[in-house]
Amino acid sequence: MSLPELVTEFMVDMKCEGCVNSVTDKLETVQGVKSIEADLSNQVVRIRGSSPVKTLEEALVQTGLTARLIGQGLPDDFLVSAAVAEFKGPDIFGVVRLAQANMELARIEANFSGLPPGKHGFSINEYGDLTRGPASTGKMYSPPIQGSETEPLGDLGTLEADETGEAYYSGSKKMLKIVDLIGRAIVLYGSDDKSDSGLAAAVIARSAGVGENYKKLCTCDGTTIWEAKPDFVASKV
């Protein structure tokens, strides 16, 4: 399924025009990339297109330059254009990224590790109360919206973990407004049955849109939360 088009920003350790050319040449080969803007003075690369973040990260790794995702969205279009929920362990690590593509559509991408192999549902729940883990996050988010889909708005579908416990998801959701999700929670379930108690939960926090995060900080607690793992930086190994 093709993802909605967005601008994705990376901080890339570019030291010269040769680095700029290397990054640009590589990204131009990625399917879904529409345009690339490399700002050497700020070491920022802006990519417009429908390519998943994971695909863009993998392309940047191949240039040999370190890179860090710092923002996503559409410039000047929304009050809150991006949000993230970070799962910090001790067993399950991951991040769910949400970005407003237009007023009727949000883009969703998720990366997880440490999951039991198999299918896992995930959803947006009403409350960001993690005192009892998933059990204290309330019901699945389901506001009454005229013309919305038959399933609850907070139903994000199902992802599948491989034999190593890693899972990746990308998709979109109609009628989902990022601004209404801040402070709620994303819950990950033990199977594709979302009626179980849930494996883990994380609070949804506002994250940087385009041009907002050159210092790599999240506005909620001053930490970088764009990465799928606590120590992740895209770099060649």
Rank of each mutant, 00 (worst) to 15 (best):
N111S: 15
G71Q: 03
K88W: 07
G73A: 08
P116A: 10
P117D: 09
L115W: 00
A82F: 07
P75Y: 02
I70W: 03
V95D: 01
L60S: 00
G73P: 02
L65Q: 04
F78C: 04
N102G: 07
I124L: 09
L69R: 11
G89N: 08
V95A: 10
E109I: 02
P75W: 03
F112H: 10
A83V: 05
I70K: 05
I124M: 09
D91L: 11
G73T: 06
P75V: 02
P117Y: 12
Q62C: 08
D76S: 08
L79A: 14
G89F: 03
V95L: 06
L74V: 15
G64I: 11
A67V: 10
T66W: 02
I70T: 13
L79E: 15
S123G: 09
S123D: 12
A82L: 01
A82Q: 05
L105R: 05
A110N: 04
P116L: 10
G64H: 08
L69W: 14
A85M: 06
I92Q: 14
L74D: 02
F122L: 09
I92E: 11
L105Q: 14
S81V: 03
A83L: 12
P117H: 10
G71F: 01
A99H: 01
T63H: 05
A101D: 00
D77E: 15
Q100L: 09
V96K: 01
L65G: 02
F122S: 01
A82I: 01
R97W: 08
A99Q: 01
V95G: 02
L74H: 01
A110V: 06
A85S: 15
A101S: 09
A82K: 07
E126G: 06
F93H: 14
A83E: 04
S81D: 11
G71W: 00
L74Q: 09
R68W: 09
E126Y: 05
N111I: 12
V95P: 05
F112D: 02
N102E: 13
G94Y: 03
V80S: 04
E104Q: 09
S123K: 04
E109P: 02
A99N: 04
E86A: 15
I70N: 06
L65E: 04
L74E: 07
G73Y: 00
K119H: 11
G71Y: 02
T63A: 07
F93R: 08
V96R: 00
A110E: 02
L60M: 07
T63V: 09
V95T: 15
L69V: 06
L79Y: 05
V84Q: 06
Q72P: 01
A110S: 09
R97T: 10
G114S: 06
H120S: 05
G73L: 01
L79Q: 14
H120P: 07
F93V: 13
F112R: 05
D77K: 14
K119Q: 13
H120G: 06
L98T: 00
D91F: 08
P75T: 00
L105N: 12
N111V: 13
L74Y: 01
P90H: 12
E86W: 12
